[in-house]
Amino acid sequence: MGAEFVQLSLTPILIGTLSAIACALPGNFLVLRRQALIGDAISHVVLPGIVLAFLVTGSVGTWPMMLGAAAAATVAVGLIEAVRRLGGIEPGAAMGVVFTTLFALGVLLLEQSDTSRVHLDVQHALYGSLESLIWFDAEGWASLVDPVALAGLPPELFRIAAVAALVCLLTAIFWRPLKIATFDEGFAATLGIPTAALGLGLVMTAAVAAVAAFDAVGSIIAIAMFICPPAAARLMTQRLESQIWWSVLFAVVSAVAGYVLAGYGPLWLGGQDAVSAAGMIATVSGLILALAARFGPHRARQGRVRRDDPQPQSR
């Protein structure tokens, strides 16, 4: 746990943790609003957005990528709505039509364009490369106070930190309207809350989180971060406030445990090379969800007797 840890593992763990938190926060509302698959759709369309931004600007800088992905998410949401309304097609199928098409477009553009100079390929887009986000300039814990070494931190860390802070801030600011609109949209509308705009804002926030997490974990595993911690948290409590805290806890545990298991697990088992950290993070979040689904105190639907429940005694 010395210099090597700081250099190789500290920044990936931080980036993974911040990504997980940034995704889990909006994920709570998506899961409650039965829009979990919007997260799925958005993280798929991040790819075409980033590729287009790269083709237009020729760089993989923060802003072009963020803007491209946000634009793609907006276009995707608009297209889903258009297909649903114009075509009279149910929302699930409309989503399936739109995000697969946009993803295919992204793959095609990526294969057609010359991206050999930059770190942008399909595999990276699908499951990220958390392990590569290391801190070259670090020489030990002392580097944390060394301005020269700090300047060499991977830029992804600042990006995800800013996004995580933004997501936390937005959640805090819009807490009340979001909570009311999530549980009772009609009531929220009568209070004068612009529910449509709020819903779109939530989706956009999720899109921004997806783009930021994209660096670290790619588009598919970002879905695990959107859905698994909030879903597990939902089975632990009845209150939204505590659900949020549970989901943050689960997100952090998934990210840290996933990274450690991926990096050091194979060594403990006598192997030599690490396995995919992003994949392991998703696996751990899935295990947490499985445990919550089996043992969570609030796992069952209310108002319905579970088959394995003892029947209430009547006398």
Partner: peptide, 20 residues
């Protein structure tokens, strides 16, 4: 068997299995 809706179940399964 849980109170999660099918969409959450789909998202969780697809991402976790993919990660594994």
């Amino acid at each position: 068997r849980t109170r999660l809706a099918e969409d959450a179940a789909i998202g969780a399964v697809l991402s976790v299995f993919f990660g594994t």
